[in-house]
Design a protein around this nucleic acid. Sequence first.
DNA 1: CTGAAAGCGCTTACAG
DNA 2: CTGAAAGCGCTTACAG
Lengths: 344, 344
Amino acid sequence: MPTPAKRHRSTGRVTLTDVAHAAGVSPITVSRALRGERAVDPALVERVLAAANKLAYVPDPAARALASQRSNHVAILIPKLSNALFVDLLDAAQQTLRAGGFQALIGVTHYDEGQEEQLLREQLLHRPAGLLITGRDHNAATRTLIARSQVPCVHLMDLPDAGEAKPPYCVGFRQNEAGAALTRRLLATGRKRIAFAGAQLDPRVMQRLYGWRSALQEAGCYEPTLEWLNPASSSLALGGVMFEQIMGQSPAVDAIFFCNDDLAQGALLAALRLKVAVPGRVAVAGFNDLTGSDQMLPPLTTVRTPRARIGEAGATMLLSLMRGEVQARSFVDLGFEIVERGST
Amino acid sequence: MPTPAKRHRSTGRVTLTDVAHAAGVSPITVSRALRGERAVDPALVERVLAAANKLAYVPDPAARALASQRSNHVAILIPKLSNALFVDLLDAAQQTLRAGGFQALIGVTHYDEGQEEQLLREQLLHRPAGLLITGRDHNAATRTLIARSQVPCVHLMDLPDAGEAKPPYCVGFRQNEAGAALTRRLLATGRKRIAFAGAQLDPRVMQRLYGWRSALQEAGCYEPTLEWLNPASSSLALGGVMFEQIMGQSPAVDAIFFCNDDLAQGALLAALRLKVAVPGRVAVAGFNDLTGSDQMLPPLTTVRTPRARIGEAGATMLLSLMRGEVQARSFVDLGFEIVERGST
DNA sequence: CTGAAAGCGCTTACAG
DNA sequence: CTGAAAGCGCTTACAG
């Protein structure tokens, strides 16, 4: 018996229809049973599940995306991979999303709003089911893209302002409070001339700067010459350079608050090289509690930031939003912890 | 005039058909013109391009994937995000792929072959156009999945063995040669009792170990007690612990080759703490030339590995394979460079 | 609670 | 070199 001349493009894949035949129901019922959508007779659900299982059926993401206008991708936008902070954030978020059945699409913005916009446009083509984006500073086009896309979105690291009208979903902590808290701790140990050394100068660094500033102003110790800002990327090498610079030009400084641990680590190494006593001559503090800070000589005082928990909680909130659940609150403040070690 | 009651699910998207209408040709012609596939009248191509441009048409990845059985995703599998080496690899690969129009799907295996297999299965569902995978050690199921999928695949970091029958595509360098070269350099400076301190013990660490071993054997200096292997993850803290251990238990050791820079950095900090003179009492060398190694006290002698270039060259080779181009050779050896600094 | 029909936006295979 | 038809594998919208 000759096979009918069908124009067939069979892929060998087990399809919804195969499962439907095996279970003796229609494809739509299989679709609904598998997604747990609407009410389906429990007996049928069981039969469908058994058939799907037996045939090792896996839904086709592309077909699903085309039909439903929604994929199982989640776009993640972070500024840089060279800062361990964001790697921890990405790692945690990615694992949580995967456990929830979603695939992460990563985009690295390099702290450039234009690139961020471009990346978002590209990722939106994939109809992501959700969006995880670092920070709250985006250009107008990016904000419009997010709003128009209707895609659930959670902002990581930063939080809404106190009285904000329509706050977006956020998971993070208050950078300015952390900056202020660390500064107050330094003041409490008797330091008076506390310099702030910042690099990169992204929005979060600036927040820490404002926190430091307000704490010093409260104490009547603020002076503009204590601010050392460098737009270059944060690194150990730069920390060493800035340390030497500050000590050379502001001999009265008795403490330095570096905006990131890599700078502070570089400063501690420079201090060893230059034989500047830490904390005897000058106290050194960092931010983030990155790898190695507890191993330094002396160990580095710093602010432990919950970036892994931010990644996880942000992804968890997004998973909930993607299920259409109403959120009890629009943001989660995960706080921070000051870790005092030998450098102060 | 009443609109016909069509069951419509319009998405508002500009489609291929819209472009076809605007250009006055059939959708297939648009498809072909846009992909540059087969011969299309140049005049028509121009008209199509103009129309597509005017309408700001962007092809739908899901529809394309469903129809062609191929997406514009590339799956990348790496062992860990906590090792800066792999972050550099990922960063470079991802950028290169993006420039070529592909989206990276990342998977973190945690050095677990089972997880690697599971991740690959998940990613294969997305019908990736290509695959970038770290190393050459995979379980049988993973190897079968790769082969069966027919997806072009490039292995990163390692290279095929000299006389290998059907070598897969690889971009990397010879870990064992790098290990041997560094060891010979240490021997050349007069060191005799050179310990090897390894952590994680993944295939690449073992290759470095073999290189070290063979160099010592050549010189008649090999002794099993010089091998210090710890399966725990590599970290600064572990480096400090291993340093203390080795110095305590093998006082005759005059040099230590750490399998990764983070260990070596931790060792240098421990040496400062313990007041062990480096390189006076003992020389210390690392591997990879990670961030901060040049800032240590003394600066760390190490092997500079071209991981960013491996990521880039691997992605470039994959792009070429995905275009169906024949490769001149199956592997690219990017070599390594020994960086002598103050610690030896 | 279940299903037959239509559709998502592309590309493949077959003709001419 | 160009196109009408069918199909990729799902889900939506409409009925019953």
